[in-house]
Design a protein around this nucleic acid. Structure first.
Lengths: 204, 204
DNA sequence: GTATGATCTAATCATACGTATGAATGATCG
DNA sequence: CGATCATTCATACGTATGATTAGATCATAC
């Protein structure tokens, strides 16, 4: 170890931030090692390849978030309100304030290619069924396909909020302030819960 | 011109598809020219740089979509229902079925960096105010900031649907089929309109 | 104190990138 | 015909990329 934190951790931290800011393809190993103040070869020593570095960066953040999600779902009991389900999905991410992790999560959710998708799918599969069940418990009249669609919509809303939160104030002339996580959570829960409760009208 | 379509158009078509599939950084000019069957230098001849090629690719699709959006907004009159506003936002994109443009749009909306953001902002600024006004007309009790937030949420939902539509069937075991645009539109309008109508509860 | 294994480093590899060049090609028109 | 112009072409430049190597350095155990 060099300073206070190990080389491995410093790489993970800087990689997380840069991946979130500039994307996976847009961030080179040299960008990462330069900012982390470590040798270029350290990445390959600790993580073998860039791909498995990406994997490690994502894994480190998603795993605890999903654990917390399942905890909140558990705490909501067998007959949750849809608000509780939505909160269980959102809060574990949103409560991280504006940490670099937030941009990373947005990036992951917005990168439907290659193996980023594989990594994401691995972690999603672990909780998707639980959330589908929870929505079913909260809104039993909702058709199974519609449940999945609306979970998909919720994921999109969250992904977008995460991805754009750092430019949103400028985009809206300061009207929208994503740094107030409490208010943001309340807005999202209100909006999404109403969406989940919407009458299901098949196309005509 | 070589075949039926000009070199310039072939570059734009292939670039649009590859940018949508693999991202802007993940697509090289060599990828594009190889698939398009044109010479590498043709890109620089017709578009000067890769950046302005990206610009041209986006411009070609977003401009007509936004024109159509404003038409639909216009057609809804001065007192639209929120459903009409949502439709005016969604339909011009969704009616393009599963063309490569759809993945491109998703990619643009999910790339909040560098100059992709600038390009996007240019086209967004041209219609954002109109949609904010339309939401205000449909739901006058909604606070201005909340209007913008919910428009932002709607953009995220659409972006996610566009980005992931090509893997969604596999992700959901075939339960969700994004190719039925009519049904998809109905689902989105129902979900999002309900979200817009949700009571606005400030954080407590 | 030195042997040992883990960690770090500088230097280098082959390849891929965006861009630029100058010559060939082909159509248009006097 | 020959001149002009836009387009296409093969090729090269300089740089950046992910990966690898062999050796230096460090901590710990004997």
């Amino acid at each position: 170890m060099n300073d206070r934190v190990s080389t491995k951790t410093r790489i993970l931290d800087v990689a997380e931030r840069l991946f979130g800011e500039k994307g996976f393809d847009g961030t080179s190993l040299r960008d990462i090692t330069a900012e982390a103040g470590v040798n270029l070869a350290a990445v390959n020593y600790h993580f073998q390849t860039k791909d498995s570095l990406i994997d490690a960066v994502i894994e480190r953040r998603i795993a605890p978030v999903n654990r917390r999600r399942l905890e909140m779902l558990e705490a909501a009991g067998p007959n949750p309100a849809i608000e509780q389900v939505v909160e269980a999905f959102l809060v574990p991410v949103l409560e991280c304030s504006l940490s670099p992790m937030v941009a990373l999560m947005g990036r992951v959710l917005a990168t439907p290619d290659q193996f980023v998708y594989r990594v994401f799918k691995k972690h999603l599969a672990a909780i998707a069924q639980r959330f589908a069940d929870a929505v079913g418990a909260a809104l039993p009249e909702l058709a199974p396909a519609e449940r999945l669609w609306r979970l998909h919509f919720m994921g999109g809303t969250m992904a977008h909020v995460l991805s754009w939160s750092h430019v949103l104030p400028e985009m809206t002339g300061g009207l929208c302030d994503p740094s107030d996580r409490k208010a943001l959570t309340a807005r999202l829960v209100s909006f999404l819960s109403a969406g989940f409760r919407a009458p299901f009208t098949e196309a005509h």
